[in-house]
């Protein structure tokens, strides 16, 4: 069964940013916060809560894929999309189409950063904020 990322334990987040460093490292081979598909930030400074901004693994019609004029985003079994970089023209329509702002943009590469639901962030989360969930194949 396919798996998707669930960031539903964010109340437990300690703000270590290991998820972001691990995502950028494993998926993009960069020491970076900017290249991570998951973003953790505070709402209202460090006295506020930590929140995560990451792909929610939409099912049925995916808004980002709908918005893509060049077919660079294909439906991923179970939810979310698969990014076909060679088809991407860098128009950023996917970025604005995502109403939870989970399509981040890599200014250096001029390409969107699309979560693969690979689970690396969850594996390196020390506090059980992130987890992988098995879901039905919706395709």
């Amino acid at each position: 069964m396919p798996k998707v990322l669930r960031a539903d334990g964010m109340n437990k987040c300690i703000g270590c940013f290991t998820c972001m460093l691990a995502c950028s490292g494993v998926n993009r081979q960069n020491y970076s916060l900017s290249k991570s598909a998951i973003r953790v930030k505070t709402s209202g400074g460090l006295q506020g809560k930590f929140i995560s901004i990451v792909c929610l693994a939409c099912r049925d019609e995916r808004a980002c894929a709908e918005a893509c004029p060049s077919g660079a985003l294909e439906k991923r079994p179970g939810g979310g999309v698969i990014f076909k970089a060679q088809r991407c023209i860098g128009c950023r329509k996917c970025e604005t189409a995502c109403i939870v702002s989970a399509v981040h943009y890599d200014e250096e590469e001029n390409k969107p950063i699309i979560c693969k639901h690979c689970g690396v962030c969850a594996k390196f989360c020390p506090h059980e904020c992130l987890r992988m969930e098995e879901v039905d194949n919706d395709l």
Partner: peptide
């Protein structure tokens, strides 16, 4: 009420 961490530290001693 909570614990926090420095960037890159999975311990969270704060």
């Amino acid at each position: 009420v909570r614990k926090m961490a420095c960037t890159g530290c999975p311990v969270g001693c704060i």
